[in-house]
Design a protein around this nucleic acid. Structure first.
Lengths: 348, 348
DNA sequence: TTTAACAATGTAAACGTTTACATTCTGAGA
DNA sequence: TCTCAGAATGTAAACGTTTACATTGTTAAA
């Protein structure tokens, strides 16, 4: 059993309170007393017990982190940012993932509340309908959402304006002469962000007098992207000349699939992603994508949560800037092929 | 302040111990008593305090997880596996990353020891020289390494045989007629795995009577891959016809860079990766790579650590199987070009 | 009806640390 | 030298829960 503050006190010939004052730097100590305590700590290999401290102070100096998955680097990057900012303030992270499942969200929050984390940073499937957030609010535990659209629920979130980003994507593609646009997205029910991106994208296109984009909702994990694209791109004369993907992993997957069915990116079809994950700049073609500042978002969410925990105001919604990063995967609209039905149509 | 067991006891008209027995399912309770306790819990919105429980039982039911970075999906996948196995046993994860820095490793372990995590799962830069592991052993806290080579230190690890994998990569490439091999790796001082892969790769090539491979050690984050490759591939008659990369992110990066300098993969140069991250199967060309079972490794490490915590034997080294997954990024050795210095040589 | 054995429940101390309040020590000023 | 104010340190209870041991209740058998 590791040494406790009692052992240190006994060894140094002082009281528990004196050792506590030394460890925490609270209150003055005579140099000789401090030296004796320090020596006792070293001799005993004492290490403060955060559990005892948590009980007596009612603060654990830990933050709960709940995200859908670590498989998407956009969440990994954010957790890195959270970790940095938390560490800087002496906080630890208690972590869990939910695999986009609402019941898992509730279970995760429940458990973190049992561990008495001081606050939480989390991404839920839908900020509007989140029993997990209801639980947090009922418990009075501060939290900040990450990436979620705060929408009409006015729940505090660090995010970007996904609707505006979707619109800007549409503007960019239309400006390049693309008139037949498509979108490939993950599940809308699992991501209010994907919904917002689609909504902005579609609204802009329709407002500009173009036909609404074809929207493909795919299960990225189950690798049905290629099949879906074969159908979408079957008729080159009516197929989209540009595809907006709801995240970068999907965009990368779409590019691979397009090339496999004989289409060149961006010559035959342009592809535009979302998130700005690092690998996108190392590929060929490099990815044109909407970059959200994931690491900054993680840091910002953490800082404002910690500010709240340290007596500041409640967390609020913060919209950070995104930027459209031009890569090689988007080019001018392809000119119509001079021949009739495309070579693709003839492929078995 | 949330309700405590005292409040529940008062409300139900029973003792603290009775409420504790109800919560934990230890000891028998009359149905009427159980019902009164249950009603009191519901009325008060009581939620057990894991901090109090941890202090009195000396167990936190949490595991510390220390990994270099979440930026590489191989770690994210492993953490997903750890999370699954831990959750199944009612454990939480306390998480931190070290960015491949030994001082950070020590600080991370130190802090997790303060929080009294029951055990740790971690990846360190070098299992042979790890002050963080010295600290854990001195504290008597069980741990399992993940991915690290256990080598002569005999520290418990869940890993694969990286040396054997390196050899098998060499065999595979030599069997395809490649005679001039190269390796692109991340920093060896930050990854004993990368060292082991190089050692196996090199040993096999030399044993087969071929010249030792050219080894490029690059800083993937600082995007110097392309510059390095231009130099390596300058003279097509002497340049490697296949490159082994120490991880998949690097391999993907190398493919992009090769294509950008005008070389086709695998026609002009083959590229083989390591890890088996999911995105590798969605690219064009799909990645030929050594797949380690990251999620399984995470689960296995967790299970054996938990078995130890629950009275079983100490964690041991477990070597899980890897497999060489054939993709499209490796092909037969390119036949020498019929002309003199390559076009590449003339590019400014 | 009484007794005894077992079930059910209560009591109280401990886990490690913090900290309000109390006590002792020290040094400066009268 | 004495006194007083502030410095330094000690005391003890509390934080929430667990659990060994004690006590009370209940039921069946004699």
């Amino acid at each position: 059993m590791p040494s406790t503050i009692k052992d240190v006190a006994a060894r140094a010939g002082v009281s528990l309170a004196t050792v506590s004052r030394y460890i925490n730097g609270t209150g003055k100590l005579r140099p000789a007393t401090a030296e004796r305590v320090n020596a006792a700590i070293a001799e005993l290999g004492f290490r403060p017990n955060a559990v005892g401290r948590s009980l007596s102070t009612s603060h654990t100096k830990s933050l709960g982190v709940v995200i859908p998955s670590l498989s998407n680097p956009v969440f990994s990057d954010a957790v890195s940012g959270i970790n940095e900012a938390a560490r800087a303030e002496g906080y630890r992270l208690m972590f869990t993932s939910t695999e986009y499942n609402r019941a898992e969200e509730v279970e995760a929050v429940s458990s973190l509340l049992e561990y008495r984390v001081d606050g939480l940073i989390l991404t839920v499937a839908d900020a509007e309908e989140a029993p997990a957030l209801d639980l947090l609010e009922a418990a009075g535990v501060p939290y900040t959402l990450l990436y979620n659209q705060s929408g009409r629920s006015a729940r505090p979130a660090v995010t970007i304006d996904n609707v505006a980003a979707g619109r800007e994507v549409a503007q960019h593609l239309l400006a390049l002469g693309h008139q037949r646009l498509g979108m490939v997205s993950g599940s809308f029910s699992a991501s209010d962000r994907a919904m917002a991106r689609r909504d902005g994208f579609t609204a802009e296109i329709v407002a500009r007098g173009f036909p609404a984009p074809r929207v493909l909702e795919v299960d990225f994990v189950n690798s049905e992207v290629e099949e879906a694209l074969v159908l979408l791109m079957r008729d080159r004369d009516t197929a989209p000349t540009a595809l907006f993907c709801s995240n970068d992993l999907l965009a990368i997957s779409v590019i691979g699939a397009l090339e496999r069915i004989g289409l060149n990116v961006p010559e035959d079809v342009s592809v535009l992603g979302f998130d700005g994950i690092a690998i996108g700049t190392h590929l060929h073609p490099t990815l044109t994508t909407v970059v959200q500042p994931s690491r900054d978002m993680g840091q910002t969410a953490t800082r404002q949560l910690l500010a709240c925990l340290q007596g500041g105001s409640d967390p609020d919604t913060m919209i950070l800037p995104y930027r459209l990063q031009i890569g090689e995967s988007v080019g001018p609209a392809a000119k119509p092929s001079p021949t009739g039905p495309s070579e693709l149509n003839q492929t078995k």
